[in-house]
C-alpha cells in the first residue's frame, strides 16, 4: 500500500533563468495580454510569430523539455479530441479523404491545425508561468496588480493573505489526510479497489474528520492572528518586496510590439 504522492503545488521548478528572474507582475501581465492577442492571429505569418514567442519562452526558461511537456500532458488529450472533432465535422474546400461515413475536407484539416495550435500555445504560456514563478511570487504579483482596485472595494491584501495561508496549510492538511487514511486502513478500509462509486464513497470517512479538523485549525489560526495584532490589510508593511528591473520593462515593450505586429499582420 503506497503512501499518497504529495502533489507539487503549482508545479514550480526552481532555477536561475531569465524567466525565473522576471518580476511576477511583468509575467502575469504578459501572459494575461498574450492570451487575448492570440486570437488576433489569422494567418500563417501571425501564427509563426506566436510560435516563435512560445519557443523563445521555452528556451529562456531553461527548463528541460520533458518537464514542460509533463505540464502540458493533462490538456493534450483535450487538444487531440478537439482537433479530431474539427477534422471530422468541418466542411469546405476539396475533399481530402473519405473513410467510410467520415469525409475529411481541406478546411477541416486547416481548422484542426489552427485550433490545436492556438490551444497548445495558450497552455504552453500558462505552464511556463507556473513553472518559473513560485506560488508565493504569484500571490505577491497578483496582490500588487490588484492593489489599485482596493479603492473600489477589492480587498487585495486580504485576498493575498488568504491565498498564502492556503499555500501554507496544503502540506499540513495533506499530511493529516495521509494519517487519517492510514488509521482507516488499519481498521480495514479499502481505498484502492471496487468501482468508481465505491471508491469515492470510501473517501467520505476520510473527508469528514479532515473537514472538522480544518475548521478547528481555522478557528485557532484566526485567534493566533488576532493575538499577533492582525487587523486587516490597512496600515500593514510588507516583508516581501518585488523589484521591477530593466528586463521587466523590456518584456512589456516586447508585448506591445507583439500586439501591434499581430494587429498589423491580421489584415
Amino acid at each position: 500500500m503506497s503512501r499518497l504522492n504529495h502533489p507539487v503545488i503549482g508545479q514550480y521548478i526552481p532555477a536561475d533563468s531569465f524567466l525565473h528572474r522576471l518580476d511576477p507582475r511583468a509575467k502575469l501581465v504578459f501572459v494575461f495580454v498574450f492570451m487575448m492577442i492570440v486570437f488576433l492571429a489569422k494567418n500563417a505569418a501571425g501564427y509563426s510569430l506566436l510560435v516563435g514567442v512560445a519557443l523563445s519562452g521555452v528556451l529562456l526558461s531553461r527548463i528541460p523539455l520533458p518537464m514542460i511537456l509533463r505540464g502540458i500532458k493533462p490538456v493534450l488529450y483535450l487538444i487531440i479530441l478537439t482537433a479530431l472533432l474539427h477534422l471530422g465535422m468541418t466542411r469546405g474546400g476539396d475533399v481530402w479523404w473519405e473513410l467510410g461515413p467520415i469525409t475529411v475536407y481541406e478546411q477541416g484539416v486547416v481548422q484542426a491545425t489552427v485550433i490545436s495550435l492556438r490551444f497548445l500555445i495558450l497552455v504552453l504560456m500558462g505552464t511556463l508561468l507556473t513553472l518559473t514563478t513560485s506560488p508565493m511570487e504569484l500571490t505577491d504579483g497578483l496582490e500588487r496588480l490588484l492593489c489599485p482596485l482596493t479603492r473600489v472595494g477589492v480587498p487585495a491584501q486580504d485576498l493575498a493573505l488568504m491565498m498564502s495561508i492556503a499555500l501554507r496549510f496544503i502540506p499540513t492538511l495533506w499530511e493529516e489526510m495521509d494519517k487519517i487514511m492510514m488509521a482507516q486502513r488499519a481498521r480495514g478500509a479499502d481505498f484502492d479497489s471496487g468501482h468508481l462509486l465505491r471508491r469515492v464513497k470510501s473517501y467520505i470517512p476520510v473527508l469528514i474528520p479532515l473537514f472538522i479538523s480544518a475548521f478547528r485549525r481555522a478557528e485557532e489560526l484566526a485567534l493566533a492572528m488576532e493575538a499577533r495584532g492582525y487587523r486587516g490589510g490597512k496600515g500593514r508593511t510588507r516583508i516581501r518586496e518585488l523589484r521591477w528591473k530593466k528586463e521587466d520593462t523590456i518584456l512589456l515593450v516586447v508585448l506591445a510590439v507583439l500586439s501591434i505586429s499581430l494587429w498589423w499582420l491580421r489584415g
Binding site: 499555500l167 501554507r168 485549525r217 489560526l221 493566533a224 499577533r228 487587523r231 500593514r236 508593511t237 510588507r238
Partner: peptide, 28 residues
C-alpha cells in the same frame, strides 16, 4: 498557543516571524 501547527501563518520561517511586525507597521 498549544498547537504548533495552528499558529504559523507564513509560508516560510522568515515570513512567519515578520507577520506580527507587518501588522504593527514596522518598516522593512
Amino acid at each position: 498557543f498549544q498547537n504548533p501547527d495552528n499558529q504559523i501563518v507564513g509560508t516560510t520561517v522568515k515570513d512567519d516571524v515578520a507577520f506580527g511586525m507587518e501588522n504593527l507597521g514596522v518598516p522593512r
